[in-house]
Design a binder for these strands. Sequence first.
DNA 1: ACGAATCTTGACAAAACTGTAAAGATTGCC
DNA 2: GGCAATCTTTACAGTTTTGTCAAGATTCGT
Lengths: 162, 162
Amino acid sequence: MKVSATEEHGLRCLMRLAIAWKAGESVTIPEVARCEGMSPPYAAKLVAMLRRADLVRSVRGVKGGVGLSRAPESITLTQAMSALAGSPVRTGPCMGPEGVRCDRQGTCGLRGVWDRVTTVVTGVLDGVTLADLVANGRSEAGGGDSRSGVAAPARWSSEPRA
Amino acid sequence: MKVSATEEHGLRCLMRLAIAWKAGESVTIPEVARCEGMSPPYAAKLVAMLRRADLVRSVRGVKGGVGLSRAPESITLTQAMSALAGSPVRTGPCMGPEGVRCDRQGTCGLRGVWDRVTTVVTGVLDGVTLADLVANGRSEAGGGDSRSGVAAPARWSSEPRA
DNA sequence: ACGAATCTTGACAAAACTGTAAAGATTGCC
DNA sequence: GGCAATCTTTACAGTTTTGTCAAGATTCGT
């Protein structure tokens, strides 16, 4: 199993936007790119995927920029990974919607295994929010359910840029 | 996250070898390929990877063939996936042995998340053996710890082919 | 109205992954 | 010894994934 480059880089963009949200600032795509060490066009592409999933909101024009569409506390990694890869865990050619070939009686116990893997991974990912990821100091790899305070001040739509 | 085609197809080869083990038979690579619906050269490549990890034993020559190197009850999916992909779960460019870029204070909570994902996935994969995968009927997606009987009769090295 | 800053989109090149092919090595049988 | 069956290895083409590029669209300030 592998977490793709797109997933990891997309998550980093989201983390940067979560930091900006907490600081009450707005950022541009080139800024995100510079902070995360990637090229502006690449960051733009990733942010576009996240925007199509409604995780990110963008404003065009000279005072424009990008930001989370809601509080980082309310965005889970399951949602983020789904936006970046279609589904948090994808299985090989034998499974999937059209999973034919698996009909052979008794010879394909793989499906049950992948289902269980999907369940436990989703469980972990559901328990982590963007706010957890950017929480400095300890507990960044901690318990899981740390949906604490900071109840989403409507920053973005009102004051697009500092 | 995605399970690769190599992992899935390699696992299917192993399942076929586990079936042959239980039946007390020896098989050739073309037979494995036919049973699992892949080309003989592809099956050969996958079996070679598994052999290098000592999960599979092979005998060349006219009476040759391939088989598991030990009982299917004693081969876990963690071991199989490691043989096929280096590690049961691989993370992106930001992590890994040389995982530089993650040193930025507080901005990289991803490491802890991937560690936890690795832990839970490995937990599931450790609890499933090749014997579980080829056990017909129910419990193929069941509890996990079903290391029942069949204590590895030394079939392979003694009688290479039926 | 014009121009600069910014996001949006689609096409494209580079890299990694999948699967195929061909030549080589080993063994058993005659 | 020679032939056929079988595994082994390396090289290769096809496909998907990654990341870049360029042209277009939108907004703000003047």
